[in-house]
Design a protein around this nucleic acid. Structure first.
Lengths: 242, 242
DNA sequence: TCCCGACCATTGGTAGCACCTTTCAGTGAG
DNA sequence: CTCACTGAAAGGTGCTACCAATGGTCGGGA
């Protein structure tokens, strides 16, 4: 029948929107582990052809969200088999009800990785990257002290991304999106003070300086202290009790 | 025409074998960045239908290995856009010519993550897990001192997997396969001494003991020292000049 | 030379069919 | 009553054919 663009108005391809919908439902717990689906159901629910339903299902399967077996259909998998490093899975979890816990576990990951990334960056960064780091830290101080949170966050994002890239380890670099999401999400959740604390500014400057100087040991500890600061700032998430 | 099973004899689905072949070629550099493909070419080369070719392409696209655009076809993407945490990408890279460098960057990732995982495990592990850790370390000593490398490696795998699982952070737990691959690959590459060095045995025991005792600070440093040992053992792989 | 429109290669999406595997219910024997 | 066999149905797997949309490419006109 050639239905065109079911109304999401986006330029996104069809299977992508279906994927997003189902992915969100699974990661959000609406479709619990063990829940069964069939291609027919997907076709009908989203008004798409079998091809699109199948491609969607393959994508979900490739992320470990479902398995597909003959005669039994499509079965939602437990979260332990999800590919939690897949950018879309991270995105969905950050968009869903598990946002807080996802933010917390990603922050733990940052605490693990970024100090070593800073250390590696101190060793391998190009001169241009070192220079850019210093400039970024200076700009961050300016915006931070003026209380301009948005630009501050963007600079924060760029600085951490740059460090991950400069580390020369593609496993670290690949976490750029993760770190970006955490930083953005943290600001959106209102976990940032209205004005960045002076220590944060100092520590960013120290990281930039030590990396620029090639002092990898100092860069590592500076980043570690910076992230300790971050973790403390995240602490308010936990007592969601009230 | 219904060609059934092109001869690989496996129980794997069709698109999976095609995916493996193309994925290996891309990650292995046989198909360089910018290389063009079309669905027709894939169909013909592997003798599959358009459906299978398309599903394969979607999977490749979802891993960031290619992009597909109308009229222009399928284009191989630069390695910077690959999803390097995807288990299949890791597998392909470990199977291809980049094995050494992949092993090295994954080891760096281990050095970043595992100390914190051990620390978290010291806090959150269940009594059963703590007990198992101690048993594993003891078994490792027995096999290690006897020079039985294979069983030693398997215990090593189990111990590190258990620690990641016990950390309670699903981002850490999801690295189980990565760590397993590194440990196996390291043995296969002959990077292990014929008989595990006594320090490695001591350190494994220390990690197990400190985690079991809930001494998270000591667990973290013990794991850090263990991994420093590991990194030194990897040193024989000469870093490629950039 | 430069811009614009027509063309066409190639993916995106739909429809429908044949086939194969797996499950499950029903049946009969012990 | 239990268990093994059997057969049918369910549902994914793979195939073909066809139309729609799109964006390079190329040629022609200002």
């Amino acid at each position: 029948m050639g239905r065109q663009r079911a109304g999401n108005g986006g330029t996104e391809s069809l299977h992508h929107s279906v994927l997003d919908a189902i992915g969100l439902e699974i990661t959000g717990g609406v479709l619990p582990e063990g829940h069964g689906l069939t291609l027919d159901v997907i076709q009908e629910r989203f008004g798409v052809s079998r091809t699109v339903a199948r491609e969607t299902m393959r994508l979900l399967e490739s992320m470990g969200l479902v398995v597909s077996r003959r005669r039994v259909g499509i079965t939602v998998q437990p979260s332990s088999s999800w590919h939690v490093y897949d950018p879309r899975v991270i995105w969905w979890r950050l968009a869903g009800p598990g946002r807080d816990s996802q933010l917390r576990s990603l922050t733990e990951l940052r605490i693990a990785v970024e100090p070593l990334a800073a250390s590696a960056a101190a060793r391998y960064a190009t001169p241009a990257q070192r220079e850019r780091l210093l400039a970024l830290a200076a700009e961050m101080r300016a915006h931070g002290e003026a209380g301009r949170l948005e630009p501050f966050m963007e600079l924060d994002v760029e600085m951490h991304s740059l460090l991950l890239r400069a580390s020369g380890n593609e496993m670290f670099t690949a976490l750029t999106d993760v770190v970006t999401s955490v930083l953005r999400g943290r600001t959106q959740l209102g976990l940032m003070p209205h004005r960045p604390v002076p220590e944060a500014l100092d520590l960013h400057e120290e990281v930039a300086r030590t990396v620029a100087d090639g002092d990898h040991a100092a860069a590592e500890t500076a980043m570690r202290r910076l992230l300790a600061e971050v973790r403390d700032a995240m602490a308010p998430i936990r007592p969601r009790r009230v």
